[in-house]
Simulated scan of single mutants.
Amino acid sequence: MFDIKFSRRPRAYFAAPLFNEMERRFNVETEIMLAPYIDIFLPQRDGGLLTKLVAEGMSLSLAKKYVFKKDVDAISNSDIVIAVLDGRTVDEGVAFELGCAYALGKLCIGLKTDVRALLATGDNPMITECCHTIVSSVDELIDIVSLPPQVFST
């Protein structure tokens, strides 16, 4: 159970894998469903894709620094981090983003639509214990973020 009050429309950072078309499409489709309720920083759109920046002429070193700074700044400026936890293991970028958000005292919501887990005991507790709640569907996520901005609770 958590109760958090916002005096304005909440800002969320969407931490998710973005390394293939399927992942990026899922991220965009989920962001579209959440957008009526919260403002979302979508790293693939708002932070920049490393491969695209390099293809457009930015050096790899500069592109890495650029993406890192944009994403860390966005996490810092967010109220909520929504972390996609799908897969046998959590994407390493998502793991970092979730840990960063937890250390900054952000509300962390896990989205795990996948039953796979590497460990017989489930996902790594360094991931799951960062999350204030973990939902198993986008519909459950919408139920949480569609609450009035004054109160979020599960």
Rank of each mutant, 00 (worst) to 15 (best):
A12C: 05
A12W: 07
A12G: 12
F14Y: 14
A16T: 08
A16D: 00
P17H: 08
P17S: 11
L18R: 06
L18V: 02
F19W: 04
F19S: 03
F19A: 02
N20P: 03
N20C: 09
N20T: 03
M22P: 00
E23I: 10
E23T: 07
R24N: 07
R24W: 11
R24K: 07
R25Q: 14
V28C: 04
V28F: 13
I32W: 03
I32L: 13
M33T: 07
M33I: 14
L34R: 08
A35C: 07
P36Q: 04
I38A: 05
I38P: 08
I40A: 01
F41H: 09
F41P: 04
F41K: 03
P43G: 13
P43L: 08
G47K: 11
L49N: 15
L49H: 01
L50A: 04
L50T: 06
A55T: 10
A55M: 13
A55I: 12
E56P: 00
E56M: 06
E56L: 03
G57K: 01
G57N: 04
G57W: 05
G57V: 05
G57E: 06
G57T: 10
M58F: 14
S59V: 02
L60W: 13
L60P: 00
L60V: 01
L62R: 13
K65N: 14
K65H: 15
Y66D: 15
Y66P: 01
V67L: 10
V67G: 11
K69T: 07
K69L: 11
D71K: 05
V72L: 14
V72M: 13
D73R: 06
A74P: 07
I75D: 03
N77Q: 12
N77V: 00
S78Y: 08
D79N: 13
I80D: 05
I80E: 08
I80L: 15
A83T: 00
A83Y: 02
D86T: 04
G87H: 11
R88C: 09
T89M: 06
T89L: 10
E92D: 08
E92H: 06
E92A: 12
V94G: 04
A95G: 15
A95D: 10
E97P: 13
L98S: 10
G99N: 10
G99D: 03
A101W: 08
A101M: 08
Y102K: 13
L104D: 12
G105N: 02
G105Q: 08
K106G: 05
K106Y: 00
L107D: 04
G110C: 04
K112A: 09
T113M: 15
V115G: 12
V115W: 04
R116V: 01
R116F: 15
A117C: 15
L119W: 13
L119D: 14
A120I: 12
A120M: 08
A120S: 14
T121W: 07
T121Q: 03
G122F: 09
G122A: 11
D123F: 04
D123I: 05
N124T: 02
N124V: 03
N124W: 07
N124E: 05
P125H: 10
P125T: 05
M126D: 04
I127C: 01
I127T: 03
I127N: 08
E129I: 05
C130S: 13
C130D: 12
C131E: 02
C131V: 10
H132R: 10
T133G: 06
T133I: 14
V135C: 09
V135L: 02
V138T: 04
E140D: 09
E140Y: 02
E140F: 02
E140T: 11
I142W: 01
I142K: 15
D143E: 15
I144Q: 09
I144D: 03
V145K: 02
